[in-house]
Simulated scan of single mutants.
Amino acid sequence: MGYRGEHIIKISLGTPPVDIYGILDTGSDLVWTQCVPCVGCYPQINPLFDPKKSSTYLNVSCHSQQCQLLDGGSCNPQNICHYGYGYEDRSVTEGVLATERVTLTSTSGVAFSTDIAIGCGHNDTGVFNDHEMGMIGLGGGPLSFASQIGSAFGSRRFSHCLVPFGTDPNITSKVSFGDGSEVKGPGVVSTPLPSMEFKTPYYVTLEGISVGNKYVPFSSSGKVSKGNIFLDSGTPPTMLPQNFYNRLAAEVKKQIPMSPIVGDPDLGTQLCYKSKTRVRGPILTVHFEGADVQLTPIQTFIPPKDGVFCFAMAGMEDDVGIYGNFAQSNFLIGFDMETRMVSFKPADCTKHV
């Protein structure tokens, strides 16, 4: 878990393998890391990945299928696939597309290798910190880590269990890929992934959120369009359309017998409370199509600093919401591209699940 509420995943890249720590991001597809030579890179603690030192590194031609599949792929003068890839927080990576060997070690200690398409970033800017060496995109598009690895592991599905914000950094979140990563058993609820034109984000349909017993509909008119929110492990707070957020926050405020203080601008949240112990907020029940997910104050109030707890949701101008990683913590969440379903199972992600 990064200090800004990001989750970092370790993969090994190249031959001989080098450890890469990238942000786990279900909201994007590209897998990339900063590479030598780095013209415009942000500073990082670990050495940059050096393609010349790997015997399995191969630049991808701009006429290849992989380059055509990449949003923002183009030809450079050497006919190598050049890419430019941007994120909602205005971070950008530019570089060349390549294939490289990735090695993952299973929980039982077995190492597994396969070749995947990756971005070698030569010009990267944005809100990255020096522990983050790039991004591991787990979106639904063909070039995402989940799609590329899933095919090698038998099926395009994966699951993750994210530890809550503020957990001891030595306790890690879990991610599993392919066959055996299905989320099943008692307590599981599932919601469909509607077919959307844009394949990357995992869009689901949110009908409303109950604060205690008080139901707050997503839309005042009661009509919701399919795929009105997407799950994004790379965005910490849950971002909701402003009108819905205002109605929801007003109800949360009403049910907490304390006076709020000024919000926390870094988190973009307006509803914060001064308290020595976690705010005893109401249970929030998120009503996805066909799946009710109950959130406790661990997922809905986070401590940006000692003695302050802030509501882990915020408003935004967009019509489509983002279900962030604070709300996803302490759930085993399965993304199944074969059956087009997302499943939720309450779990203590700090323990072995």
Rank of each mutant, 00 (worst) to 15 (best):
S147R: 15
T205P: 11
R157Y: 01
Q148P: 04
D124N: 15
P164T: 00
A98T: 05
K276Y: 06
S91F: 03
F326S: 10
Q148N: 05
N246S: 14
V96M: 06
Y87R: 09
T105G: 06
T26D: 09
F309C: 08
I20L: 10
K184P: 00
L58R: 15
V189P: 01
M337N: 15
M316C: 03
D292L: 00
T300W: 08
N170E: 12
L284S: 00
T33I: 02
M341I: 15
G22H: 10
F165N: 08
I298G: 04
G27A: 10
G139N: 07
G72R: 05
F230N: 04
N59S: 09
I116M: 12
R278T: 08
K226F: 03
Q148C: 02
L240H: 08
V211W: 07
A327S: 15
P16H: 11
M1G: 11
A347F: 03
F230K: 03
L162F: 07
I171A: 01
Q148I: 01
S28Y: 03
S91I: 03
E6N: 12
R340P: 01
M313S: 15
F244S: 11
G73E: 09
F311A: 08
T172L: 14
I116C: 04
M337E: 14
F145K: 14
D19H: 10
N123H: 13
V320I: 15
H7Q: 09
K351T: 14
I116T: 07
E207H: 11
A327Y: 11
C310N: 14
L13Q: 13
L58Q: 15
P265M: 01
D179E: 13
T200V: 14
L97I: 13
V189H: 00
Y202V: 04
G150K: 08
P17G: 11
I209F: 05
Y85L: 09
N46D: 13
L295H: 12
R156M: 12
C41H: 07
L248K: 12
F218D: 05
G185M: 08
A117P: 01
V216Q: 05
A117C: 06
Q294I: 01
A314K: 11
G137Y: 13
K253Y: 07
N59W: 04
V216L: 02
